[in-house]
Design a protein around this nucleic acid. Structure first.
Length: 987
DNA sequence: CAGTGAGCGAGCTTCCGCTTGACTT
């Protein structure tokens, strides 16, 4: 620690760009470094959990529930190098100042830094809200200590989010679909989208008509006016209709104009004189909008520039890093005095002193739960660069965003806009005799004030239209004008608009949900999880979002309350203020306390059994009520079902577009099936179809078909002939009988194979299904099961050699590439590329997380992989010998085979072990074993089986006796055989 | 969700909030 140089102080802030700026202000004796956000967090997944805690039940959560929810903090691997650097810098400093943001998260970062760096020199905490020389020097002069209550509040927030997310998500995996997620923020955001879509789905539109009249004064000036009353009755407008019925709302007394009436009235009013019955002029003023915060920047970026939230933030980040704007993740509309004076100077220069607001404007806190650690988003510095002066310096997106920020900032110190609004009523009489009233309104801007610099964009075009200046000619009461032209106009009521990125962020912010740093990523999360897709600007919730939201609303309603976060924030404020404690709060939330609190864990435990997955997957669509059609989310996406008939829902069909007619159309849509002919023997159609498992043909057009068969790889769905289809449908084929068992040739999901009892052998080609004879089949059954096939199928991808150590080889498995040295195996993870893997890295991976393969039940003791491999080979080699011996003597074959098979499960006395023990369960049973289980079969099944097994008859011969088609009887025989084997296995 | 037999190394998915590069294509 002994240093020859002058004493110096290490200041740590959160952002590198901020560090650079501050260093300039602090000068000699100070080094400023950044933490780059949080440096530690709860472990994200198993890979982050230290070995020491791996076995703990609570490690997955990172919170030791039984020990006061003690958090387990880890430095993420990608942060380790940086933390090491900070630690080194800390050891070389004489003093450390933790200058992270002045909010809950910032306080926590300071505390984590303190914990992780373990400094041996004095440590101070300082805060500032604007990056100006004065503010920073003032902050340096007034240091404080870390506020442990505030840190506790952050830890509570963190723990609650973890418990919510990591406990509720698995409920969704089980009840809806894997990889889904739930969370305090995203689940409410999703719910908002779903509820809006539900309104749209229930919406019934209505049509109404009115008249647009062009009035003409004596001087020849024209102006637009709209019909408001007919024969003393108010005209019905869009807002008078009930969105659920499309009819006028209860209690509304209004005249509803139909098209014919509107046209007749237009005709009758055309050219008629009108009298101004009233003309009212009112002055108005409009104040400028507050300067940008993250949410409003994203909203205006979207409305005015058409940027998605991420695009706005990317451009803002670059502007910030290059020193053009202040920090872009903020919830404060506050401007430093430096900024206010810079803006005012610029207004005076560019627009003249009359455009300046008389007093500097101060904007109040805008949103719920704002933490106000930073300034508003504004051009940086004590004199703003004008957008024009930066044209050559900034890229397109950056310049346009800077321009927007500059205008908004400057505008906020400008004078109010002033103007007059004029509202005129007119009366008249149609030629047909009805009295009518009309109204016209106008808006005149007398002094634009801030509007010279900035007009806020709008999500609603009709509102924007209203905002536009619409001057009216000066009209006085009693004045006569002419209905110069009269145009009937039809209108349709519109369902509530879908959320856009911007409006969703606005709503979330309004409810105090989410933070400036997360708005953009929330949008990403709900899209990544498949809860929403973008259709133009609109966010359209998916059917999965409906299912997820329904589950949460019905079973965890308080978790998706719009007020949940607001309530949490109140509680966190209490903790930050020392009025409440973290542990009791978390206990109530997670475990419950004598019937009080959320009690999440017990709730989940009781709900797991209660929640009906099928019910949750069935989505209520009001417009399909009574149609018998149900919408359901299945493993392969959303589909409709009506009495067994199914149809996929097209991917691009938004939920609100699914009307009864549309549903019927999709249900009756040809599924791409092609009828290729009729089976003469049965009279049923033969249909070629494309299925989930690939192309196949069916006998019968209905669902499910009578029979079906996959096409061979050499077949083509488009050119398949009837003869070929029927040939495929003739499978499975009975090859003959061997060892008292039928041998069937069958096409399965692993390809063509032969089956004898519960034994099977793969065939090398599909055509063999039709050709293979009983001798060849028997020869195949003499071969070991997978002997040559497997040895050839698994060549190592790569091999790494090490002196004094077994080789490690890279193999391809069904879970992807993995490493093995015969002892341990380790699957490659994301980012570990099989091509670029080095020998060192391979060794590292295997030693770090290699696992011994799980012991198979029924195998004794812990054997090494190498030993087991050897044993397997040996037993593989032995099998044909044994079978060969058996085949020479049919009588002795059965017991020889049966003995090991039956003994194994018998040894495993506990029911659990037996149920898990797959290997012995696959044993071959003799007819004597199976016979006692005939009771599990239906009558025809039993007759089929006994006739084939005991009388050696063929299925083809028995089928007519049972009144069955041969193919169906074959299927039934197979099915029966399966049932019997299962019964014998299960005991 | 629609027909289907076996055997091979399991292990992970997920939250919210702070913050940037380091990667590859």
């Amino acid at each position: 620690m002994a240093k020859t140089s002058a004493p110096h102080t290490l200041v740590i802030v959160e952002s590198p760009a901020k560090a650079r700026t501050i260093e300039k202000y602090l000068g000699k004796g100070y080094t400023v470094e950044s933490s780059i956000g949080h440096i530690r967090d709860l472990p994200k997944s198993a890979a982050d959990i230290p070995e020491k805690y791996k076995g703990k039940a609570w490690a997955r959560l990172g919170l030791d529930i039984e020990n006061d929810f003690q958090p387990l903090y880890v430095v993420a691997p990608e942060k380790r190098a940086h933390v090491a650097k900070l630690r080194k810098m800390a050891s070389e400093a004489d003093e450390i100042i933790l200058a992270t943001d002045d909010d809950r998260e910032g306080e926590s970062i300071a505390w984590h830094l303190f914990q992780e760096l373990r400094p041996k020199v004095p440590v101070k905490r300082m805060v500032f809200h604007e990056i100006t020389k004065e503010a920073i020097q003032a902050a340096i002069a007034a240091p404080r200590q870390i506020d442990s209550n505030l840190v506790e509040a952050q830890e509570t927030r963190r723990a609650l989010d973890r418990l919510y997310g990591y406990e509720v998500s698995p409920v969704l995996w089980k009840k809806v679909a894997p990889k889904l997620s739930a969370g305090r923020v995203q689940s409410v955001a999703t719910r908002m989208l779903v509820e809006r879509e539900r309104e749209r789905m229930r919406f019934v539109s209505a049509t109404w008509w009115d008249l647009l009249v062009t009035g003409k004064t004596a001087e020849g000036a024209t102006f637009p006016a709209r019909l408001t009353d007919v024969a003393g009755q108010k005209l019905a407008l869009g807002r008078d209709f009930d969105p659920l019925t499309g009819r006028l709302k209860d209690g509304v007394v209004a005249r509803l104009l139909g098209e014919a009436e509107a046209r007749a009235l237009a005709e009758g009013l055309s050219g008629q004189p009108l009298t101004v019955t009233s003309a009212e002029e009112k002055p108005f003023t409009q104040r400028p909008y507050p300067p940008f915060i993250t949410s409003t920047l994203q909203q205006e970026g979207s409305r005015k520039l058409g940027f998605a939230a991420t695009r706005t933030m990317r451009a803002a980040q670059r502007l910030y890093e290059q020193g053009y704007i202040t920090y872009m993740r903020t919830d404060s509309t506050n401007l430093s005095s430096e900024a206010v004076s810079a803006a005012r100077t610029q207004v005076a220069q560019m627009y003249g002193p009359s455009y300046l607001s008389p007093q500097p404007r101060v904007y109040a806190k805008k949103s719920k739960n704002a933490q106000e650690a930073h300034e508003a988003i504004r051009p940086a510095g004590s004199s703003f660069r004008t957008p024009d002066s930066l044209r050559g310096e900034l890229s397109g997106d950056e310049w346009r965003l800077y321009d927007l920020i500059w205008k908004r900032t400057v505008a906020c110190q400008m004078a109010d806009a002033r103007g007059r609004s004029l509202r005129v009523r007119l009366g008249g009489k149609a030629k047909t005799g009805e009295d009518v009233q009309l109204s016209a309104s106008g808006r005149t801007i007398d002094f634009p004030g801030f509007l010279r610099a900035y007009v806020e964009g709008s999500d609603d075009p009709s509102a924007a239209l209203e905002d536009r200046e619409t001057p009216l000619p000066p009209l006085r009461e009693g004045e006569r004008v002419l209905a110069d032209s009269v145009k009937p106009e039809g209108h349709e009521t519109q369902p509530p608009a879908r959320y856009t990125e911007a409006s969703l962020v606005q709503s979330l912010e309004g409810a105090g949900i989410g933070r400036p740093s997360t708005y953009a990523s929330i949008l990403g999360t709900i899209q990544d999880r498949g809860y929403a897709t973008k259709k133009g600007q609109a966010l359209v919730p998916s059917w999965t979002a409906f299912a997820t939201s329904a589950l949460l609303e019905h079973h965890f309603s308080s978790l998706v309350d719009y007020d949940f976060t607001a309530k949490m924030e109140e509680d966190l404020d209490d903790i930050a203020g020392g009025r409440a404690q973290r542990v009791p709060y978390l206990r109530r939330f997670y475990l419950g306390d004598h019937g009080e609190g959320m009690a999440l864990r017990p709730l989940i435990d009781s709900k797991m059994g209660e929640i009906d997955a099928r019910g949750i997957a069935t989505i209520v669509v009001p417009k399909l009520e009574g149609s018998g059609i149900e919408v359901r989310v299945g493993r392969y996406g959303p589909y409709m079902e009506r009495s067994g008939e199914k149809a996929n829902l097209p991917e691009d069909l938004a939920p609100d577009e699914l009307t009864a007619e549309k549903a019927e159309e999709i249900m009756s849509r040809p599924t791409g099936d092609r009828v290729i002919g009729t089976d003469e023997a049965t009279g049923h159609p033969v249909v070629a179809r494309a299925g989930r498992y690939g192309p196949y043909v069916t006998l019968g057009a209905e669902n499910p078909p009578i029979r079906s068969a996959s096409l061979f790889p050499t077949d083509d769905l488009g050119t398949l002939t009837l003869g070929r289809a029927l040939k495929l449908l003739s499978l499975p084929r009975l090859v003959g009988t061997s060892e008292g068992e039928e041998v069937w040739a069958q096409n399965g999901k692993y390809g063509p194979y032969l089956k004898r009892g519960s034994d099977s052998r793969s065939l090398t080609s599909h055509e063999e299904l039709f050709n293979v004879g009983i001798q060849e089949a028997e020869a195949l059954f003499l071969q070991p099961r997978y002997g040559k096939g497997r040895a050839a199928a698994a060549p190592p991808l790569r091999s790494f050699e090490y002196p004094g150590r077994a080789n490690i080889i890279l193999k391809s498995g069904r879970f992807g590439p993995y490493l093995t040295d015969g002892e341990k195996n380790a699957t490659l993870r994301k980012g570990e590329d099989e091509g670029t893997l080095t020998a060192e890295r391979a060794l590292e991976i295997l030693e770090e997380r290699g696992k011994e393969p799980q012991k198979k039940p029924g195998k004794s003791g812990a054997r090494t992989g190498a030993a087991r491999t050897g044993a397997a080979k040996k037993s593989g080699a032995r099998t044909p010998a044994r079978k060969g011996a058996a085949s020479t003597s049919a009588a002795s074959a059965a017991p020889a085979k049966k003995a090991p098979a039956k003994k194994a499960p018998a040894k495993k006395a506990p029911a659990k072990a037996a149920a898990k023990a797959k290997a012995p369960a696959k044993a071959t049973f003799t007819w004597a074993d199976l016979r006692p289980h005939l009771g599990v079969l239906s009558d025809p099944e039993r007759r089929l089986v006994t006739a084939t097994r005991e009388q050696g008859r063929k299925v083809e011969d028995i089928a007519p006796e049972l009144g069955l088609e041969v193919a169906k009887a074959k299927g039934m025989a197979l099915q029966a055989s399966k049932k019997l084997n299962q019964a014998a296995r299960g005991g």
